[in-house]
Amino acid sequence: MVLLFIRHLDIAIKKHEIMSVIGWIKRTTLIAIAISLEVAVMLWLMFYFFTETLILTLTPTFMRTQKSLRGKVVVLTGGAGGVGQELALRLARANAKVVLWDINEEAMVKVKDNLEKEGHQVYCYTVDVTDRKNVYKNADLVKQEVGVVDILINNAGIVCGNTFLDIPDYMIEKTFQVNILSNYWTVKAFLPDMLRKGKGHIVTVSSLTGMLGTYKCTDYSATKHATIGFHESLHTELKTHGHRGISMTIVCPYFINTGMFAGCKPNMPMLTPREVSKRIITAIKQNEVYVTMPTWARFVLPLKQ
């Protein structure tokens, strides 16, 4: 009886082993099929988006669909600076409702006076974008006095321009507060309305130094690198949750001749506020996702890896 029991047990174990092997083969096959499908989909999407990008890059601006800015409420941080002034002018000439945010009230009034001489109405708010409560308070005022914001342009920025050990501690903190943390407060203030409307546009003015560490820019480059990460992650979140109506544009220009980079000795001529602002407006109208200035930089910079 014992021998018979052992024999039956041995047969059962072998059957179990056979079933285990069959089960393992099935599971492995299903996993392989799933991975193959995911890879196939990924390759197809890579091919599709690469082709789309190539076609759009080679298509002249005048042949691409451009949205109108007429009547759009646009909040522009750093509106009294060099690029900010030019952006405000071009937005106003496009008949947008321009809302300037800047901590420099005197400079902002000058911008407003110049635009009003051309017959444009501009709304100005003295805002410290590093102060979360101040941002939220003025965001509510804009909604009450101007209307729900359609386009947010995070343009405010500062730079110290010293080597690492020569940067004062307070300037490191301030650079992070202005260049990146403020983006969180402004987007949090205006994104909920865009989600409710199902449309909107967020523009992040970053820098090529956020893609390539630069001499005397350990603070500035780090913050601009952070803006790229923040922007791309938010873009992914919005698309994942189906918010296709909200466009996002990140702009990474070379050094701009606004006085911020005085003392720098770049390898190429600095960009002018006029050409940068013109490119940003074009990117907004065409719902471009990713812009570098000069354009060829986005193809060359990956080689640093």
Results as ranks from 00 to 15, higher is better:
residue 1 M to D: 10
residue 7 R to Q: 10
residue 7 R to N: 06
residue 8 H to K: 15
residue 8 H to P: 00
residue 9 L to P: 01
residue 14 K to Y: 13
residue 18 I to M: 13
residue 24 W to R: 14
residue 24 W to M: 15
residue 25 I to F: 13
residue 30 L to C: 09
residue 35 I to C: 10
residue 42 M to C: 14
residue 42 M to A: 14
residue 45 L to P: 02
residue 50 F to C: 09
residue 54 L to Q: 12
residue 55 I to E: 00
residue 55 I to T: 00
residue 59 T to N: 00
residue 60 P to S: 00
residue 62 F to Y: 10
residue 69 L to W: 00
residue 74 V to P: 01
residue 81 G to F: 01
residue 88 A to W: 00
residue 93 R to S: 09
residue 97 K to A: 02
residue 99 V to S: 03
residue 100 L to D: 04
residue 100 L to V: 09
residue 101 W to R: 02
residue 103 I to W: 02
residue 104 N to D: 12
residue 104 N to S: 04
residue 105 E to P: 02
residue 105 E to S: 11
residue 106 E to G: 00
residue 106 E to W: 01
residue 106 E to P: 01
residue 110 K to F: 03
residue 111 V to D: 09
residue 116 E to H: 02
residue 117 K to N: 11
residue 121 Q to K: 15
residue 124 C to P: 01
residue 125 Y to S: 02
residue 129 V to T: 04
residue 136 Y to L: 15
residue 139 A to Y: 00
residue 141 L to T: 08
residue 144 Q to E: 12
residue 145 E to S: 11
residue 146 V to K: 06
residue 146 V to M: 07
residue 147 G to M: 12
residue 149 V to G: 05
residue 150 D to N: 07
residue 151 I to G: 06
residue 155 N to T: 06
residue 156 A to D: 05
residue 158 I to T: 08
residue 163 T to S: 14
residue 163 T to W: 12
residue 164 F to C: 11
residue 164 F to Q: 05
residue 166 D to E: 14
residue 168 P to M: 13
residue 170 Y to T: 14
residue 172 I to H: 08
residue 173 E to I: 08
residue 176 F to E: 12
residue 176 F to C: 08
residue 176 F to M: 13
residue 182 S to M: 12
residue 182 S to I: 10
residue 187 V to T: 14
residue 188 K to G: 02
residue 188 K to F: 07
residue 192 P to R: 04
residue 194 M to P: 08
residue 200 G to R: 00
residue 200 G to I: 01
residue 201 H to I: 04
residue 202 I to D: 01
residue 202 I to L: 08
residue 203 V to L: 07
residue 205 V to M: 15
residue 209 T to C: 14
residue 212 L to K: 13
residue 212 L to F: 14
residue 214 T to P: 04
residue 214 T to E: 11
residue 214 T to N: 10
residue 215 Y to G: 02
residue 216 K to G: 03
residue 217 C to S: 14
residue 222 A to M: 12
residue 222 A to N: 09
residue 222 A to W: 08
residue 224 K to H: 09
residue 227 T to C: 12
residue 227 T to I: 12
residue 228 I to C: 07
residue 232 E to P: 10
residue 235 H to R: 15
residue 236 T to E: 11
residue 237 E to H: 08
residue 239 K to T: 05
residue 240 T to C: 10
residue 244 R to N: 12
residue 246 I to V: 10
residue 249 T to M: 02
residue 249 T to G: 01
residue 251 V to E: 03
residue 252 C to A: 07
residue 255 F to Q: 08
residue 261 F to A: 15
residue 261 F to V: 10
residue 265 K to A: 10
residue 266 P to N: 05
residue 266 P to C: 09
residue 267 N to P: 00
residue 270 M to H: 03
residue 271 L to F: 04
residue 273 P to F: 01
residue 273 P to T: 05
residue 273 P to G: 10
residue 274 R to I: 11
residue 278 K to S: 13
residue 280 I to D: 04
residue 280 I to E: 04
residue 281 I to Y: 02
residue 282 T to Y: 02
residue 284 I to C: 03
residue 288 E to G: 03
residue 288 E to F: 06
residue 291 V to H: 02
residue 291 V to G: 05
residue 293 M to R: 04
residue 294 P to W: 04
residue 297 A to H: 06
residue 297 A to K: 06
residue 299 F to Q: 11
residue 299 F to D: 07
